[in-house]
Design a protein around this nucleic acid. Structure first.
Lengths: 226, 226
DNA sequence: CTATTATTTCACCATATGTTCACAAAAGTC
DNA sequence: GACTTTTGTGAACATATGGTGAAATAATAG
């Protein structure tokens, strides 16, 4: 069951999409503006976002820009006929498709389906390698390289690093780290995390400051695409 | 060196793709319509076709249909936004991916790469014999040689080795190994795997360290092409 | 049925790893 | 600056994990 996020300020549009998407077997969440879309994306996982460009509070482009910083979710943009949009800007943001209003729900769903199928196929053969400057992380192989040199990490260090990266640019509280990596039933010292962070930082040497301390909160893996 | 066939009626598009593909180390042939694409495919071998849907003389779909009758070549379809997609749905024609215009050449190439790698891997596993330095494994014959010398393995050892190799460079948890090799209904001791790994390692002697222990996780067959 | 081979279990051990803790260092607060 | 709070760190200790040989069990062949 795919989760769809529909972002549009016009209730009618949302309704039409929801109705058809429900029918097609999607699970639909609605949002009325870019701001709340971002909030929702922080807290939940969606498989596809359908987003209007012109919206109050925060327009579609800016919202997508923010969301893409957090999670890589496929996006279909809705634009009113005659609305100018910058194609180049669009694909830089990783927008997968555009649909012009008025649209046929059937076609919109067809495109949504096509994108999801494509992503699914892609993820199968997808290279699970991510690079952050000289820091290369291969999730499938469970390897990490620093400046081309393979480094060894302990299980917890892998888990921690992978978790941080999967949530890159997101503030992670100690509580969250503990419950997500150690398990909700872990009742340990707060220093435990710090110690692992320390070891991890030492191991990734020159890239240690990708792991940022958030005083009073926890940690964050900070990296902006270039 | 891969051979790419780019089929589009717009010279500009062809040019953009060619430029980027050249740069990525592909050998590019251009065609302006479906008809000539078919002709080219009859006479030459291509590793991948990038084809526009909307073209004069013969549209992309029909061309692909014809080409697939002759040769099984991977295809990426280009579609202008607003074109009907319904047909693409089941990928019934054997289309591997499609990209919506306007596209980023970088992404197009990334997808082309992904498809070629996928195909390569697929064809490899069908290849019955694989060598890793002095370790030669023949899947069809179910034989393994170490430095030219045939070695005997027990059934489980074969299974284990074959499985590891088919998933080479991928971290495999004990759970996964157990359920995939022993069956989901196996409720055995964790040590079972370890023991078989031990025996396998002893049997492949000098190449024992291709089988890497992933502490806290499981095992992995690690080998980088030379 | 017996002999042989294969698989699984298990206890022992070395060691890699996780946790704790005391103290040092740093960052905020007043 | 003096104080409080929070984070960094090294070392000590406890624990978990995987390698291993041998024994028990199961499967297979003769």
């Amino acid at each position: 069951m795919y989760n769809l996020l529909v972002v549009d300020d016009e209730p009618k549009i949302r309704e039409v999409i929801k109705e058809y998407a429900d029918f097609s077997g999607y699970n639909v969440t609605e949002a009325a503006d870019g701001m709340s879309a971002i909030g929702l994306c922080k807290l939940n996982d969606y498989d596809l976002i359908i987003m209007d460009i012109m919206m109050p509070k925060l327009d579609g482009y800016s919202a997508v820009k923010e969301i893409k910083k957090i999670k890589d979710i496929p996006v279909i943009m809705l634009s009113a006929r005659g609305e100018e949009y910058d194609k180049l800007f669009g694909f830089e943001l990783g927008i997968d498709d555009y649909v012009v209003k008025p649209f046929s729900p059937k076609e919109l769903m067809a495109r949504a389906n096509a994108i999801l199928i494509r992503k699914q196929n892609a993820s199968k053969s997808q290279n699970t390698v991510m690079t952050f400057d000289g820091l290369e992380v291969n999730f499938a192989a469970r390897t990490v390289s620093v400046d081309g040199e393979r480094i060894d990490l302990t299980p917890k260090e892998y888990e921690l690093l992978f978790y941080l990266i999967q949530n890159k640019n997101i503030a992670l509280s100690r509580d969250k780290l503990l419950s997500d990596i150690w398990g909700y039933d872990f009742f340990g010292d707060d220093r435990t995390i710090d110690t692992h962070i320390k070891n991890l930082r030492n191991n990734i040497g020159p890239y240690r400051n990708f792991i940022v301390t958030l005083r009073g909160v926890g940690y964050k893996f900070e990296y902006e695409e270039k």
